[in-house]
Computed example of a mutant assay.
Amino acid sequence: MGKRLNSDEMQTIFEILQKSYDVYGPKIYQGTGCFSDTDIVRYGLLNSWEELVWDQKSDYSFKEVLFPVSETILYFTEDEMKTADGVARQRLIFLKSCDFHALKRLDEMYLKNGAEDYYYRRMRENTVFAVMGCKESGKNCFCVSMGTNRCEEYDMYIFPDEKGCYMELRCRELEVLLWDYGQNAQEKLNFVEKNEIHVEIPENLPDIIHQDSMWQEYGSRCIGCGRCNFVCPTCTCFTMQDIFYKDNPKAGERRRVWASCQVDGYSDIAGGHSFRQSQGERMRFKVLHKVADYKKRFGYHMCVGCGRCENVCPEYISYVACLQKLKEKEGK
């Protein structure tokens, strides 16, 4: 059973949520795009219901709210160390279905891939998720091909239309806060059923695919900027940085910062050795991890079909076209 809300009740719902949560969602940051006088849509703290962007895909994913670009994990002096405190309040994140599926991938890597990541778990357990219904496919989306266009295990589902808003709650905590508002209703959930782009993921690649000459063409085109990794909701790699304070060089803080398998230095090891030195080798590593290696280990693909990497590449390298080439080599 769901709830049908009018526009006034929608704002009331948002204000009630603000009292218990820091509410995050995709919003417009004016004048901060890559080109002059352009805007960008990325996740941030919402101050009103009207700030929430429904009609377009965010340029960056929800990942930077749950797993910050730069996060202080501990403070140290010459004598002692202190773990950094977590966020003060619970968080509620509005996100689309593809990003909600990406959450499962992040959980797999940080909570089930060996020892649990303490900092991720702390944030994860302090966060609830509201899935935003999609009326139509975004640019370069192929979520239907990846089976991530629909989801069920959300805490809240919400979708606005000309009549107001339809909402479903599957979290006891949210039910206590919101159930007294709106009229009882049962409506069909709005999710994208068709994308302009259809992708067939190869399921039977030859063992020697990593030696294929197709990867060489990316060596001259890719500039190794790492933007595809930073907008991807399922990339999880990070590096560590120790920051020493100027007023006391024996004290400082340790931060973990997003890293990219596409940039120079990522695969460097002690002794000056480096793996995957060419951009073609790095492209191969990223793509095969998303649609082959990860599935062999966990049983489903890492890629969720959001298409952000396709949108953001400054060299117009098509991830979708790469997948199509791999499909043509399947079984050979």
Results as ranks from 00 to 15, higher is better:
T127M: 06
T127Y: 00
T127C: 07
V128H: 04
F129R: 04
K139E: 07
F142D: 02
F142T: 00
S145Q: 02
S145I: 00
G147M: 06
N149H: 13
N149R: 11
R150W: 02
C151L: 12
C151K: 08
E153D: 15
D155E: 10
M156I: 09
I158M: 15
I158P: 01
P160L: 15
P160W: 03
K163F: 08
C165E: 03
C165M: 13
M167A: 14
E168G: 15
R172L: 14
L178N: 02
W179C: 14
G182Y: 02
N184L: 12
Q186L: 12
E187C: 13
L189C: 14
V192K: 15
N195K: 10
E196L: 11
I197T: 12
H198E: 14
H198T: 12
V199M: 10
E200W: 00
I201M: 12
I201T: 07
L205W: 02
P206W: 00
D207P: 02
E217G: 07
E217S: 14
S220L: 05
C222N: 03
N229P: 03
F230P: 02
T239I: 09
M240Y: 08
M240R: 09
M240W: 06
Q241R: 13
D242L: 11
I243L: 13
I243S: 10
F244R: 11
Y245C: 12
Y245D: 11
K246F: 11
D247P: 13
N248Y: 04
N248I: 06
P249S: 14
K250Q: 07
G252Q: 04
E253S: 14
E253L: 10
V257M: 02
A259Y: 00
A259I: 00
C261N: 03
V263S: 08
V263D: 01
G265P: 00
Y266R: 07
S267G: 01
D268P: 00
G271W: 01
G271D: 03
